[in-house]
Simulated scan of single mutants.
Amino acid sequence: MIRTVIVEDDPMVAKINTRYLEKMDGFELVAAVPTVADALPIIERDQVDLILLDIYMPGEDGWSLLSKIRWLGQGVDVIIISAANDKESIKKAIRFGAVDYLIKPFEFERFQTALNSYKQEQSFIEKQEELSQNDVDNLLLNKEQPQSAVGTSSVELPKGLTKNTLKLIWEKILENKTEVFSTEEMAQQVGISRVSMRKYLFFLADIHIIETEVVYGAVGRPIFKHRMANLDHNLMEKYISG
């Protein structure tokens, strides 16, 4: 089992992350705490494999915890879960050795992808006494190519997404550029299931075409609201052409 600590000061977000983690096979929640001061004794005392770490919290921030973990030489991996989406935060996370970075708000599929990828990589490494250069390349370099390096040619979509459906969704978004829409509303307009639509909208958020926020009602589950954030026809053409 991958022993995991959640460090998150927002009780609602901590609850959601805990519920998401409980859905994942192979992971065990050691603790969910709201501050760095609460997290450090747990990390020092218990066997912890993975931390799901917020950045901005009361008192010391997540960067401070990351720095202390590295200084202590603790063999703990970190997935950052933060609303910070500026380039300096991303670069800093990479320098500190974060294994993934989830930008709030996100949906379960992105959380699931991050943790499953981490689990698969750890399982693979544990089975090897020595790794070949090809093994190392697959682990460290087999990432989606940044958009700036792709050029103008067609780009493959993530598994499970189709160009025709993405094109329909893009056309619907263009029809109502300034309007906010929910996942369910867009699913109804395009004629696909809400579950399928979530995958497409997550992808569009991941490439910064739309932005997403979570709206919490008085009762029931949170509603994800989306709006266009980037009118980049050239970027979209790479995914829907061909």
Rank of each mutant, 00 (worst) to 15 (best):
I81K: 02
L52E: 03
I43N: 03
Y56E: 14
I69M: 10
D77M: 06
I42E: 10
E28P: 04
P41F: 11
R45N: 15
V48M: 12
G62K: 01
G75L: 09
L29W: 06
V76P: 01
I80L: 03
L72N: 14
I42L: 15
Q74R: 14
I42H: 10
I42S: 09
Y56P: 00
E22V: 08
T35N: 10
A31G: 14
L52Y: 03
Q47N: 14
L40F: 09
G26Y: 01
V33E: 10
K68H: 08
T35S: 15
I55F: 03
W71D: 12
D38A: 14
G73S: 12
D54F: 08
V30K: 11
D77P: 02
G75V: 09
L50V: 05
S67Q: 10
I42D: 08
D38F: 11
E28V: 08
V76F: 06
K68N: 04
L29A: 08
I43G: 00
E22D: 13
Q47D: 15
V30T: 15
W71C: 07
Q74K: 14
V33R: 10
L50H: 03
I81W: 01
F27N: 00
S67W: 02
L72H: 13
D77F: 04
L40Y: 09
P58N: 09
R45I: 05
V48P: 02
I79K: 03
D38T: 13
L65N: 08
S64N: 07
L53V: 12
D49S: 04
M57I: 12
V33P: 10
F27Q: 00
G59D: 06
V36D: 02
M24C: 10
M57A: 07
G62C: 05
G73I: 13
G59K: 05
P58G: 09
E44N: 11
G26D: 02
Q74D: 02
A31K: 15
I79M: 03
V36G: 04
F27Y: 09
K68I: 13
V76Q: 05
S64P: 00
V48A: 11
L66W: 01
P34S: 13
D77W: 03
V36L: 06
A37L: 10
G73N: 12
M57Y: 07
Y20V: 08
A31T: 13
F27A: 00
L66H: 00
V78W: 00
R45L: 07
L72A: 13
G75A: 14
G26Q: 01
I80E: 00
K68F: 09
D77K: 11
F27M: 05
S82G: 07
D25Y: 04
A31W: 08
M57P: 03
D25F: 01
P58H: 05
G62P: 01
D61S: 09
D49M: 02
D49T: 09
G26R: 01
I55H: 08
D77A: 06
W63V: 08
G75M: 12
Y20T: 05
G62H: 01
Y56Q: 13
I55V: 14
I43R: 01
E60Y: 08
D25K: 06
K23I: 04
W63T: 07
V30F: 10
V36R: 02
K68G: 02
Q74W: 12
E44M: 12
K68L: 11
I55Q: 06
S82I: 05
I42G: 07
V78T: 05
G26K: 01
I55N: 05
Q47T: 15
